[in-house]
Each structure stands twice: as C-alpha cells, then as structure tokens.
C-alpha cells in the first residue's frame, strides 16, 4: 500500500522530469509531506518558503501568472484556515493556476490533535467559487488526481491523508462531477469520499455478512459535483448514508443533503462523519472508534438507518 503523500510526490517526480513548469513550494513540512523526496531529485523546481503560509500562497499566485504550475505543499489546515484569505482573493478569485496539496487532513495526522486536524476544509472550499476539490480514495487515485490537476488550468485543492488505507478499485476512472459505483445493493445507498471510502468498503463487507445489501458510490471530486449528478445517482433510493472523515456539516454530507432536498422526495440522508465537535490526539484506532469512523462504527450507523422507519431520525 502506498500512502497518499507518497503517491503524490511520486507522481510529481514523474511529471516534473518532462515539464519544468511543475514546481513544489514547501511550507517547511517537506519531511512530513514527502516534498523532500522531490527536492532531492529536482532542486531547481523546489522552493522552500518557510513557515509563512500566507506568503507561500501569494508567491505561488505570482509564479503561476508567468506560466509556472506551482504545487503549494503544507498541511491542509494551514491552507484552509491560516491562508484562506490568500487562497480566496489571490487564487480562486483570479483563477490562478495554483495547485494545493492539503496534507494530513482529517483526524488521522500522527497524533497532532485538534490544532492540526482539518475537519472543515471541504465545507470551506466547497463554498468557494472557482475552486476544484479532489478527495482521492487511495494512492492510485491520488496519482491520477495529480496528473488531472496539472493538465487542468485553474485552482485545485487535493485533499490528502497521512496514513495508508486499503486500496480501492475505482476502475481507473477519475472525472469531475462523477460518482463511481463500487458495489451494487438494494437496501441503502452509501456515498463516501477520500480514504474513508476504504473503511466504508470494509463496513459494507461487515453488513453483507449481516444480510444488509448496500449500494456504494465513491466521490473523488467534491467540486464540481452537481446536484443533478447526485440526484441521478441516488435514483429511486429512499435510504441514503454519507460517510466522510470530515465534519458532518458542509462537506459530502451537506452536499448530498442539499441535492436531495432540491427534488422534494421522501429520502432520508444519514450523515456519518465528525459531529459538531473537536477531536483530540490519539492513536488512529482510538480516533476512528471514538469519532464513529471505524468500519464497525460505520456499519452500526448504516444498519441503524436501514432498520428505522422513514420519518425517524437516525
């Protein structure tokens, strides 16, 4: 298994060799993000920008205006919280060709705790016009996303996880405004994103053993992901569950709920993710269990939804 940060840097090393527009700008987290691997091979396409994320984003916007394709590499939380104004005005509002590698997102960031856990980035960036948001499932999809982002002109935020999860067979398809069907089923439609998709696959394996037949869709692009695409994918289902390593407010769950509300059909949407609370520093297994994201906990939530009459809260 390749972690997403390893996949990210491996793909950039491959691209940079034949495209000298591709740069990596580091916010002094290079040994965490693996940008250091890139620097060792392409020192002329690597720029250390130090611990100054706002300037980091501005530098990238300036370089992009001359035709560079800069990858801004730091923890997601520093992009979407500390440098948000710069991301907004200098990049999203101008359509600058800047790529953001948001590392160490979600809860599992090596024990750094709530200061570094980015659980709001999807909500923030999904609300930002002009931004593209990709949340890959695994290493292979991360590599495809890096290629897509470099070929695409305009801002891209790539949400990356620190640690490896099981690989997911997404069929090699990566396209905007699209949901990939990973499993057929009739009792419930489950939509997941990012590395939480692998845990959701495991949860649905558990449920299959318990007699629950679930359909599973994976969202690699959270923006663009249109209401029409979500509504079409949900089809005639009446029981929908979203699963993400993010707040249940404003991310995938918010997106799906907004889309389904627009059609006025009685469908229940159960949003699995971090409740409206801060997390803490702890080992991964502890966090996944405590905050409801382990396969077992996800399975419990889905089973509870399937077993409840429509009209009841889950």
């Amino acid at each position: 298994m390749t972690s997403q940060r390893e996949a990210w840097v491996a793909e950039l090393i491959e691209l940079a060799g034949r495209d000298d527009r591709v740069l990596v700008l580091d916010g002094d987290l290079g040994t965490s993000t693996k940008a250091s691997d890139f620097a060792a091979i392409y020192p002329g396409q690597f720029l250390q920008m130090g611990i100054a994320e706002q300037n980091l984003v501005g530098i990238a916007a300036g370089m992009a205006s001359l035709g560079a394709v800069p990858w801004v590499a730091t923890f997601g939380v520093f992009l979407t919280q500390r440098a948000l104004d710069q991301v907004r005005m200098l990049v999203a509002q101008t359509g600058a060709n800047v790529k953001f590698a948001g590392h160490y997102t979600g809860l599992l960031n090596g024990g750094s705790g709530k200061t570094h856990q980015d659980i709001e980035d999807l909500a923030i960036l999904r609300a930002m016009p002009g931004m593209t948001v990709i949340v890959p499932a695994d290493g292979a999809e991360t590599r495809a996303a890096v290629r897509w982002a470099v070929e695409h002109t305009g801002p891209v935020y790539l949400r990356l996880a620190r640690d490896s999860e099981k690989e997911v067979d997404t069929g090699g398809v990566l396209q905007p405004d699209h949901l990939v069907e990973l499993r057929h089923g009739k009792d419930v439609t489950v939509i997941s994103t990012g590395v939480q998709t692998a845990r959701t696959v495991a949860a649905l394996d558990l449920l299959a053993d318990r007699g629950v037949s679930a359909r599973h869709l994976h969202a690699a692009f959270l923006k663009p992901l249109s209401e029409r695409t979500v509504v079409d994918a949900v089809g005639e289902a009446t029981e929908v569950v979203t699963v993400e390593e993010h707040s249940v407010r404003g991310g995938l769950g918010g997106l799906v709920a907004e889309a389904i509300a627009s059609i006025g059909r009685p469908i229940r949407v159960t949003r699995v993710g971090l409740a409206d609370t801060w997390s803490e520093s702890a080992p991964n297994d502890f966090l996944l269990d405590r905050y409801g994201l382990s396969p077992e906990r996800v399975a419990e939530r889905i089973q509870a939804a399937v077993g409840s009459p429509l009209g009841a809260a889950t």
Binding site: G62, M63, M89, Q93
Partner: peptide, 23 residues
C-alpha cells in the same frame, strides 16, 4: 494582480520576481 484585502501584493510580486529569474 487583483488586490483589495491588504498585505497580499508583495507576495505576488515576489512570486513574479522569482519566476522571472527562473525563466
């Protein structure tokens, strides 16, 4: 450059200067 929220123009200019030198 697009500006308005204060304090951001010098970073953009520095980015232009950096890439100008690289090219």
């Amino acid at each position: 450059a697009s500006t308005g929220s204060l304090g951001q123009g010098l970073a953009v200019g520095a980015g232009m200067a950096l890439e100008a030198r690289r090219r």
